[in-house]
Amino acid sequence: MSAKLSHRYRTQYTYLMQTVVTILIAVFCLTPMFYILSTSLKPRGAEYMIPLELWPSKPTLQAYRAVLGIVEEAELASESKGSMVLPADQARIVKSLSFVTPLRNSLIVSSAVAAFSLLISSLSAYAIARLRFRYKIQSLIFLQLGAMIPIAVTIAPTFMLMRSLGLLRTLLAMIIPNIFYNVPMSTWLIACYFAELPFDLEDAAKVDGYKPIQIFWKVIIPLAAPGLFSAGVFAFLGSWGEFMLASAVSMGIPAVQTVPAAMLNFSVQFRYEWTWISAAIILSVALVAFMTLVFQRWVIRGLTAGAVKY
């Protein structure tokens, strides 16, 4: 009887501990973003008010409207009395720095990068994981070693290369190098997944009458979906956040800036407007965070398949 009771007590205690641990980790991981979200919902200027509000008493979407460039002169005028800059000029600046363009640019760049690096890496991963040839390990190492070269090392000549190709101030100058920045990692992730698939499957498809290239599309690719997926997300996130190259080749031109470059630009222009900066941060992260959340299970599965391999 008492053993039973103490057992029940113990499971309840364990359950409590588990909940506490979960909450602690959640606080650690989410507080910063939560506070940014809260700041972004404050009215302009309220972010500096002491005592700090953890959550705004009067949440407003003002900052988002400013960041997206839908802001009226009058609105700025009423708030910035005593500012050196005329409301009209300020409104123009805000509009020119609108976050819509960078979001669109980033979407284009990241989608293109994810798609092409997936295409290229799934081919190379297939060769490495499933074909017989000499110098396989050397090939893999050649690719992986490339990935370890810091962008700081390659940025200057890449910049020159893009200039001589006449690609400066275009999105292509970000897309092309970023594809290959992601190829080695993607190759690794996908190859680990490919390697798990039984070889009998391919042989079976061969005697069933399919050519290797058809087998690649009909059997291997569908089965490696989680690996491909996580590699795709990796590439998407990587190019979404890539800053050094993006800020170098966009050369300060808002029309071709991706989110990170625009973000820095914005935060320099409106150094003290933290409600705006916060709103910009939320906008920059929302899409990728949502995407990762939705596909979380696959992404983690794909990533861990690669990790376990190590």
């Binding site: 009998d200 079976a204 005697v207 089965l223």
Partner: peptide, 12 residues
């Protein structure tokens, strides 16, 4: 046509 020891059914 071949039948494999592992059956090699396409899991997807």
């Amino acid at each position: 046509a071949m039948v494999f020891q592992s059956y090699a059914l396409y899991p997807h």
